[in-house]
Design a protein around this nucleic acid. Structure first.
Lengths: 182, 182
DNA sequence: TCATCCATGTAAAAAGTTACATGATTTT
DNA sequence: AAAATCATGTAACTTTTTACATGGATGA
């Protein structure tokens, strides 16, 4: 389960609470989970049972007390092993629209054009949202030049993905129009 | 649940058994489910209860008897409504590697280069497999020119996705090397 | 002879999401 | 006065995957 490794990796930055982790995972879109409480708190418990993190309870006046989690030496070791030795999964996608297109063989050309436009609208919207998310995250300070470079490349990867999808939509539309005119 | 709509859409091609559906969904990689028995047979039951499909049992000598499912008129109506009126979901990705890269800020340059190469290998392999899958599927006959065009565009979409990922990996590697030399 | 194909189904586990529950403080 | 933030946790549900179960026919 890579979710727990993600927690571990973020705790390498600095010790923090489950609530902090939740916020980070939720705003980082490429950490693709919902980042809900259930996963976070269960994950932290499991990591603690494996001795990969420890926590220290901080009581606060006029605020709920917090558990600050810190990664242990064996936690760092396990995490580095995951990074270096785990098989690198190829990207996975779910493009429901491809299924819809595959099953639209007997639709009228105009209808196919319509659903292509709907998809285009949806991808454009997503791209805008993604750019806004990244603008906000660009304000976060990175630990060093390498981390900054890697995060900028990740941004590029995500933006590219949506932009390539838009280019592909245009191509399909152009091809459909030629068919329609005949 | 788009899985059941997928079943419905494939049944629009022609009546067939759950087993046939399973094979089609399994070999069509962009229908991203495992296409396991549980989903197929439960899905068909649900569709039948909604009156969207009917089945006819065919007994066979020396082979298990089969249930041939046929889409009903209201099934076709529901399916077309799904295609035209359902919101078009933007593509979703799970790129575990982006998470690994995001958490590799304190790795040595050589180690980052190593995991990039591992990822490149993994994506290349996946691309090859995908091309082979598509070569096999290219042998299937399509119902008409439009369906043929749409399926060729879907192939292009999938191949593009992996090829763009490979281009991106090269770019990241090139950028890392400049950093390493400094 | 051993594996795969045909053909249907069930059981159980894992993974993931949504909603519930509490309660003080701060912001709108 | 209402909503959001901080902070932890639980419960219920949906979705998805893996494995089990049967059994004859065909192919390597």
């Amino acid at each position: 389960m890579s979710f727990n490794f993600t927690i571990l990796g973020v705790l390498k930055w600095k010790p923090m609470t489950g609530y902090d982790l939740k916020k980070i995972i939720q705003k980082t879109t490429f950490m693709y989970w919902s980042g809900n409480n259930n996963q976070i708190y269960k994950g932290l418990l499991a990591l603690q049972n494996q001795g990969l993190v420890t926590n220290e309870v901080k009581h606060q006046d006029g605020a709920p007390s917090k558990k600050i989690y810190t990664i242990t030496a064996s936690g760092i070791e396990e995490f580095n092993k995951w990074i270096m030795e785990s098989p690198k999964e190829p990207p996975e996608f779910k493009k429901e629209f491809l299924i819809q297109m595959a099953l639209s063989g007997d639709l009228k050309v105009d209808n196919v054009m319509a659903i292509l436009s709907q998809y285009e609208e949806s991808v454009s919207m997503k791209l805008l949202m993604e750019k806004e998310m990244q603008r906000r995250q660009g304000l976060d300070k990175r630990r060093n030049k390498q981390e900054e470079y890697l995060w900028s490349m990740i941004s590029e990867n995500i933006i590219n993905t949506y932009e390539n999808e838009l280019l592909w939509i245009e191509k399909v539309k152009a091809g459909m129009e030629v068919k329609g005119r005949k």
